[in-house]
Design a binder for these strands. Structure first.
Lengths: 234, 234, 234, 234
DNA sequence: TATGAATGAGCTTTCATTCAT
DNA sequence: TATGAATGAAAGCTCATTCAT
């Protein structure tokens, strides 16, 4: 094993790295992580107590510190896990018949996923600005989704299906925000909406905003990227 | 649950109603309110201390309680004030030549306003779910903007300028979120954008999503698809 | 009053500066300082609890932090006070008839003073190396006594009373240590001694070591500073 | 009072007597003892953690308790070892030509030895008063050195080399302290000295204090003043 | 009204020690 | 013997709120 026996190493970070944990340790850590998720979702970050997390996990108060060195650290771990889950869930495995139908399916899936995790996502919203660390995590998570959408928009533009005058990244960011925020207002702030109507409206807005509802023949003289309105108004 | 997170607590009347204050009292109260705004913007809600607010206001610690009965109460007062300011600011003084230009001006104005108040708006985001009281305040504030936009959409639809198949309220909510969230991601989360390009993209997305870029002859057989207002009002 | 109302100043050190305290505050601070002295003397530093100090002072636990920000800080204050007392106590106001008699009086006084404060001085010993801060305080306090003794030695040398071959500073340091340490071994470690005999021995050792028991005529050819033994051995 | 500061606790037998250990066990115990020495020297007693000692020794945290029943117990073991080493080191192999030269050699050796072990000796100073047990150990260790010096003084007195008016024990204690404390102030408190000058000054002070620099004819009428040994033994 | 000292519940964190494997 | 996870008593410290002046 040959650990670091130098006196300088005497002061080390308390929580043992995850890779060095025994099976029992991994089980306890998982229990704490699950408990933290439940507690954060139920009380928000500020009102959550380490004592609550330990109690829900069924371990002694001190055991918490065997695995995490602070409330911030579990929070980080919980949120990483949540975002990993959100990123890995894939709504459809078969290619949708049309962009519009794919968008509709994605919207429905996103809204349902949001509703399921609403309490925890509300907490994520609360803490997004608490530390630079979390802000960075948030930015990177967003970028994952934005990039995915931006690539789709690019593909549609290349295929002559979407308005080529839109910047894919700005557009993906804006339209993504629209759906994400709609879900937040609905499930967290408590505005009331009807699912079918919400999906329908959001989809129609995307389709029309992207110009997916009519063709965009690749005209040889490149049209100005922005803000070129339709020719009829000029 | 801690004693003062219940919605009733925040609704409690101030130690002394504002109307009964002397001129000196009003001045002190205003100083505290300003100080709270600065401190909340600088530290967020959880990290702000009554002691900080008092010190910044230049009054003794105990004086705070002459005007507010709790931290929640100042928060409420600060946020009310902010939302009142945001609602009263009017961007354009002359009627815009076209909906698209009006939208563009509104977007630019909103983004600039957001940038100015970013820190406080970030705090508002943090606390939105802290109490039912704040959640309600948030809902009502949103409704003010959404209704204003919904009325505009309705007008454009009635004038044959906008897609009549869109529900004005759902649409106003979704498009409003898009801009609000874009500003948040930019000024709070720290994504980087260019103002002109942002305004252009957001405007183009609104215009195309609403179908403001082509005509919508009032064909009676298409109107009923979505629960828009009854045709008799136009 | 015009305090610092800038937001940057919001985060300030907790304990209000002593000069700004009211009479009541000064009283409480003094009570805490006295209590700390008692508790440190009784339990040593490591075993003393803030709770003990507060209880002995008759104030609430939190009140401690109104005046000191940590156990280290009171310790520092207590030790400063002790050293100030030790430095200001003057044994004799009349010039002693001879150096030897002055030394004897000083020794007796030092031993009695040590016995009185033995418990607290034992604590001082314990903590001397706890922080650079305390180590510095210790060094400076020592220097005060060493310098005083060194000046006396210098005077005696100039008057032809003491061995001119001794470096006043090294000598003062060494002889001072001898007495200080004798007291420590006696009153703290628990070795048993008789006061008269102790004073007599220490004084005789000083007198002979310094050569105060015979004359040192200022020979025109400066004798080698060190280690020149008596001429009889060469 | 806390459970383990009583003298009995430190006297408790180790979980398993050293004699019954296997070769492997002896090796582990030695590793822990060495580690404790390093950690105590580096962090002092209060700031040293069993976890640190175990880590530096390269064994699991729990293994510590196979060999020692508490932190106090290792401390005791470490300090015993240190004092055994200090007592067994013999500076000179050949008889010194004169008392003065012997004293000088002893002083130089002592100062160097102190410098080498300064950190651990500083810790010893810190803990000297922590328990009656340690205070006793300290007293006995001191007595060993004091007795050795006292015997030398006695011999010099009997040979007519040293002032017969000095009590050998008091004198040995006082002069021993002088050197020991000088080293402490130098290597622990951080006062700055030059080795040659220090050795010279300390030696000169001893020599003159003891009167080794001139003869002391055994005049029978002066001898009885202090309780030196009875003249019949010489 | 204003002041600033006092309060103490509440939470976090540490770490010596135990114990199942 | 060795391991490393679990325990929980003990402190430390914070800060919203109260209160005497």
């Amino acid at each position: 094993m040959s650990p670091d026996t130098s006196p300088e190493a005497a002061r080390e970070v308390s929580p043992r790295p995850v890779e060095t944990l025994t099976a029992r340790g991994l089980r306890t850590r998982a229990a704490l992580l699950d408990a933290a998720r439940v507690v954060f979702a139920g009380s928000g970050f500020a009102e959550s107590r380490i004592a609550d997390i330990s109690r829900v996990a069924g371990v002694a108060h001190g055991t918490f510190y065997t695995y995490f060195s602070s409330k911030e650290e579990v929070l980080h771990a919980v949120m990483s896990e949540l975002q990993r889950e959100m990123a890995s869930e894939r709504p459809a495995h078969t290619a949708p018949p049309s962009p519009a139908q794919g968008i509709e399916a994605a919207h429905r899936h996103y809204l349902r996923m949001y509703r399921t995790n609403a309490a925890l996502l509300a907490t994520l919203e609360q803490v997004a600005t608490l530390s630079e660390d979390l802000r960075t995590m948030r930015r990177e998570h967003r970028r994952f989704f934005v990039d995915r959408t931006a690539r789709a928009i690019q593909r549609w533009q290349d295929a002559g299906l979407a308005d080529p005058g839109l910047d894919p990244t700005y557009t993906a960011s804006a339209l993504g925000n629209m759906v994400d925020r709609f879900a937040y207002v609905w499930f967290v702030i408590g505005e009331e909406f009807d699912e079918d109507k919400a999906v329908e409206t959001l989809t129609r807005l995307w389709v029309q905003a992207l110009g997916l509802d009519h063709e965009h023949p690749p005209s040889p003289h490149r049209r100005p990227r922005l803000p070129g309105r339709s020719t009829s108004t000029s």
